[in-house]
Design a protein around this nucleic acid. Structure first.
Lengths: 137, 137
DNA sequence: GACCATAATGCAAAAGCTTCTCATTTCTCT
DNA sequence: AGAGAAATGAGAAGCTTTTGCATTATGGTC
């Protein structure tokens, strides 16, 4: 299945690519940094170079298979693209990321962009806050 | 005047800090990277080390005088805080940044955060697109 | 199933951006 | 003006990410 996905976007089916895709699909966290992936693969006894991980993730991004996010952490995180757009709620204490979707906001954004004469290509809405669990601590 | 601002937030009034503040107030671009500032100061014959600029900007950020943004450029940009919140429209071709404000979106964000149980601390909405000028090219 | 051209990988080195260290200088307050 | 504390400069170091190049693996073909 994933094999097809890779071929479809013109990428050879290689072990590193399969493993990385698999991990993105199955990991607890939906948002992983390159290093997270590297370490998780090591734990699973898959020694894949960090450079390869970066290269593969960039190719996946170009191919539209994953999305790269720059939260305010200094590290980019990657997320498997599941076709539907959503925005993010990031806990500044524990780093947890939740997703949400809001039609009103989407509509407003389109309106704002077109009023400014922009051809919109992407957008990113991130709300930073403290999640319920971290508020208790 | 700025002198007071600095003292108020517990920072000594030094030449580098004054020059950086001045630049942020008077530059054509409202959003400047540390390196932009470094170069602009050089042009104005003010040799201020890049390290100092980073330090000062971080202090200004902590003091609430400037805001740091992480657009998808790999470089942080800084903007003088003028008290009122706004969001950003970034041109992916020329890098130009425009600002906008939309009450509906703000309200939605607050609602979303509180529904998820988050205590909101900040948010960032960035719309990426191609500006009118760049569309012509 | 083996072969070949091409593409992918790994490693180490390099490249950006940002932060840190520490000796020296500059402020503030008296 | 002088003392103590804080800030600066320069270079080194730290992190994340990218690149170069020799080696290895893949996909299509015979």
């Amino acid at each position: 299945m994933e094999t097809q996905d890779l071929k479809k976007v013109g990428l050879k089916v290689t072990l590193p690519r399969m493993k990385i895709l698999e991990l993105l699909q199955n990991a607890d966290q939906r948002h992983l940094s390159a290093e997270d992936i590297y370490k998780l693969l090591l734990e699973a006894d898959e020694e894949i170079g960090l450079a390869t991980i970066y290269r593969v993730l960039t190719q996946f991004e170009t191919a539209g298979l994953v999305t790269r996010h720059h939260f305010e952490t200094g590290q980019a995180v990657f997320e498997l693209e599941r076709g539907e757009h959503h925005d993010h709620l990031v806990c500044i204490k524990c780093g947890k990321v939740e997703e949400f979707k809001n039609e009103t906001i989407e509509t407003c954004q389109d309106k704002i962009a077109s009023e400014a004469g922009y051809r919109i290509t992407d957008h990113s809405l991130i709300i930073y806050g403290v999640c319920p669990e971290c508020q208790k601590k």
